[in-house]
């Protein structure tokens, strides 16, 4: 036996998962499942689509309609699913490399279309699966196997990108603040339109070890100590804020949604179809 949640929503035969000890992928994945459970969604109508990476392996563990795609392309597959069958709740699981590097183009265009998908990006600041190369979200001067003398690339703020590209729900949470993360995902799923939730995560094996970040618990504590809730963030002076990041709901607006707009065209053409 396992917890009710696991019994109900996980494919038990696939467990234990392949993730390293202390990897936060399991924490974020459980937050997604809890959000689905809290919303009381029909398991048969939920579709989980993932790309390629450690984080993307999550789809295989989950007992929904699950699709593990190609590197960076999950959102494009998900777009096909949602557009073809709007009855499905489509949730995309992706990594910082998967979504912000190779999949960047699909990401911005899905934001722009405002298609009703919920994308959860597990941001561990590294390419975990391929062994610790730097990603678009590796902080400057941090180390990675392909940045042995420090990373000179600038940090890519994917939440800002999402807002700029036209997403209508954007939030950031962390693997430490699990309850809040669950709520943010819940709201993202309920939101009509393109929802993006960045889940700051930890990769103790590569990012942690390369950058001397300590144990998995130390890394989670770091998230705890450097996260500032959006409600407090605006009041903080820049000095105090410089090494911190905002968590919470960054954007929640209503804009025309792609699938509904297409339906309107069909209605205007007076086409009858189910």
């Amino acid at each position: 036996m396992a917890s009710e949640l696991v019994e109900r929503y996980f494919r038990k035969e696939t467990l234990p998962n392949i993730w390293c000890p202390g990897c936060s992928n399991g924490i974020v994945t459980t937050a997604i499942v809890r959000a689905i459970d809290n919303l009381g969604l029909d398991q048969n109508k939920v579709c989980i689509v993932s790309g390629i990476g450690c984080s993307a392996r999550a789809s295989g563990y989950l007992d929904f309609n699950t699709l593990h795609t190609t590197h960076g392309r999950a959102i494009a597959f998900a777009t096909g699913i949602k557009f073809a069958n709007p009855d499905l709740t489509v949730i995309v699981i992706t990594g910082d490399g998967d979504n912000a590097a190779i999949g960047g183009n699909h990401f911005i265009h899905a934001c722009r279309r405002n298609i009703d998908l919920t994308v959860v990006m597990y941001n561990n600041h590294i390419y975990g699966m391929t062994g610790g190369q730097h990603s678009p979200t590796t902080p400057r001067f941090d180390r990675a196997t392909t940045a042995p003398y420090g990373n000179i690339d600038r940090y890519f703020d994917i939440c800002k990108l999402a807002i700029g590209a036209g997403a209508t729900y954007v939030a950031r949470g962390t693997a430490y603040h699990v309850q809040q993360l669950t709520k943010l995902i819940e709201r993202g799923i309920s939101h009509k339109g393109f929802s993006f939730i960045e889940a700051l995560s930890i990769c103790p094996t590569y990012y942690g070890r390369k950058n001397k970040k300590g144990t998995p618990a130390d890394m989670l504590k770091w998230l705890k100590d450097h996260a500032v809730d959006i409600k407090q963030g605006s009041k903080m002076d820049p000095e105090e804020f410089h090494d911190k990041f905002i968590i919470g709901e960054l954007l929640n607006i209503d804009e025309p949604e792609f699938v509904e707009e297409y339906q309107k065209i069909l209605n205007n053409l007076k086409v009858n179809y189910k």
Binding site: M1, A2, V6, A175
Partner: peptide, 12 residues
């Protein structure tokens, strides 16, 4: 239970 990445500890 909330933070275990491996679903290995929980309240029943």
């Amino acid at each position: 239970e909330l933070r275990c990445p491996d679903f290995a500890i929980y309240l029943e």
